Simulated scan of single mutants.
Amino acid sequence: MRDEDGSKHFLAAFSDPAAVARYAEGPPRFVPGFHDLHRMCGVMLAERAPDDARVLVVGAGGGLELKALAQMHPGWTFVGVDPAGEMLRGARRLLGPLNDRVELVEGYVEDVAAEGFDAATCLLTLHFLGHDERLRTEREIRKRLKPGAPFVAAHGSFPQGPGQRDAWLDRYAAFAVASGFDPVQARGARDAVAASVNMIAPEEDEAILRAAGFTDVTPFYAAFTWRAWAAYA
């Protein structure tokens, strides 16, 4: 994920210590079944990953999925990469005693050595990237996976037809309000997403995964504006 690919605004937000301190409060209010999504990711990865799997986590800042997966699978070790150093510091604090199973890299996926991982995830990240950068990132992830290894991606993805985009963005904000988020801030988040985040249709997301070289692209989660897939290197 590169700043020049439209994510500069959000990278700046993720570099603000005050925003990072509040980060964990946000996703459960905007993503239906957020904690269950982490558990589902762990289940999907474990279908093919060994008990001692080495797992690549792209967009690891904050450490929420790292903590969930590490607690589910005590034999797994992780390499997490994220360009926002402040978010990685937050991940360190969140992980606590789990840190001894996690290596954190400040940078992008290409800054991680291509060593043959047993599994990979990229959660709530790819929607910050345009088509070409998303494809490049997914290809870089695939290069780092052993043949047949599972990859789980989850991010904003919803129908983009006439009138559909605005309706789904309104639902995105309405769910946050129903979850206890301030209505004015929810509307601001909705407008920021509309202006700056590259949420595309699910069928286009699946096509990019296939173009990156992944096979057996399998949707396993859909909730309002969010989708998740498992795919295999």
Rank of each mutant, 00 (worst) to 15 (best):
D118A: 06
E204Q: 15
R210Q: 15
P159S: 13
G180K: 06
G33N: 03
P32K: 15
D191Y: 02
N198A: 11
H35F: 10
A222M: 06
P219A: 05
G130K: 12
G90C: 01
A49D: 14
P83I: 05
G161C: 11
A18D: 13
F10A: 07
A84K: 00
R187C: 02
L88C: 11
D52N: 14
D216M: 04
M199C: 08
A195Q: 14
A120Y: 03
E138Y: 06
F78V: 08
D216I: 01
R190L: 02
L124D: 03
T215L: 08
A223H: 06
A174Q: 13
T225R: 05
V184R: 07
D170V: 00
A173Q: 06
S157E: 12
R139T: 04
P202L: 14
K8E: 15
C41E: 02
R165H: 10
L209Y: 15
D132I: 05
L11A: 12
V112D: 10
V105S: 13
A174I: 00
Y23D: 02
G59M: 06
A154I: 11
Q164G: 02
F10R: 11
D3T: 10
F158P: 04
P219N: 02
R54W: 06
G61C: 02
F181A: 14
N99L: 14
R93A: 14
A68F: 11
D16K: 03
R93G: 01
L104C: 09
G33Y: 10
F181E: 15
R93S: 10
Y221S: 11
V217W: 08
F117L: 09
R165Q: 14
A60Y: 15
I141W: 01
G62H: 01
P159T: 15
V177W: 04
A12P: 00
D51K: 09
R136I: 00
G59Y: 11
V184K: 14
V58I: 08
A228E: 12
A174T: 02
V43I: 11
G62P: 03
F175K: 02
E4S: 12
F14I: 01
L69R: 01
D170K: 06
L69Y: 06
P17R: 10
R227N: 13
Y232H: 14
K146D: 09
L95T: 10
R48D: 02
L56D: 03
P83S: 05
E106Q: 15
A186C: 05
P17G: 08
E47H: 11
F34I: 00
L145S: 04
L94E: 07
L11T: 10
E138K: 07
L124W: 08
L124T: 03
R2L: 12
F158D: 14
L88S: 04
G33I: 05
A153R: 09
G213H: 15
A60T: 03
A46C: 01
H35N: 09
S196R: 15
D5M: 05
L98M: 09
A194D: 11
V193M: 09
D100V: 08
D111V: 07
D118Q: 02
D166R: 10
